[in-house]
């Protein structure tokens, strides 16, 4: 049965470490969500992936109920992890901060494929490579 939506909120949080503090508190309390329930369930579902950023897409209904699904880690996080760098370049055109291989790009594309609009892995790989370049991370063979 369809329900009327109040909001769709995506929280990008460290796996297993959600708490009622910001950003969860202000993001969910304004919609009347039982944020403790969300926090506990999010931590339960992501506890085995500590160290990753796991987005949760929360669909909030007008009757106060909500549901959420976990999504794949953000592309930029996966690229930074693959390149072994903490952050991207502030001047990506001039300064490169790291490298990732095509194989790593493909690996990330496989992880992200469900969440990207690409029709196939090759299309997803093009998007991933573009994001890497915009972060000052080179894609090498």
């Amino acid at each position: 049965m369809a329900k009327k939506l109040k909001a769709i909120v995506t929280l990008q949080l460290p796996a297993g470490k959600a708490s009622p503090a910001p950003p969860v508190g202000p993001a969910l309390a304004q919609h009347g969500i039982n944020l403790m329930n969300f926090v506990k369930e999010y931590n339960a579902k992501t506890a085995s992936r500590i160290g990753e950023i796991i987005p949760a897409e929360i669909t909030i209904f007008t009757d106060g109920s909500f549901k959420f699904r976990l999504k794949s880690p953000p592309t930029a996080f996966l690229i930074r992890r693959a390149a072994g760098v903490d952050k991207g370049s502030s001047t990506p055109n001039r300064d490169k901060v790291g490298k990732i291989s095509r194989a790593q790009v493909k690996e990330i594309a496989e992880i992200k494929r469900e969440d990207l609009n690409a029709v196939d892995v090759e299309g997803a790989m093009l998007q991933i490579a573009g994001t890497a370049r915009s972060m000052g991370i080179e894609v090498v063979d």
């Binding site: 369809a2 329900k3 990008q12 460290p14 950003p23 993001a27 950023i53 953000p74 952050k87």
Partner: peptide
Amino acid sequence: QQYGHQGVVIERAGHFIETWE
């Protein structure tokens, strides 16, 4: 993510949708 406390929020601008799922 680099500056925020424990992550970020992404929400439809204007917040409220009021439509069917």
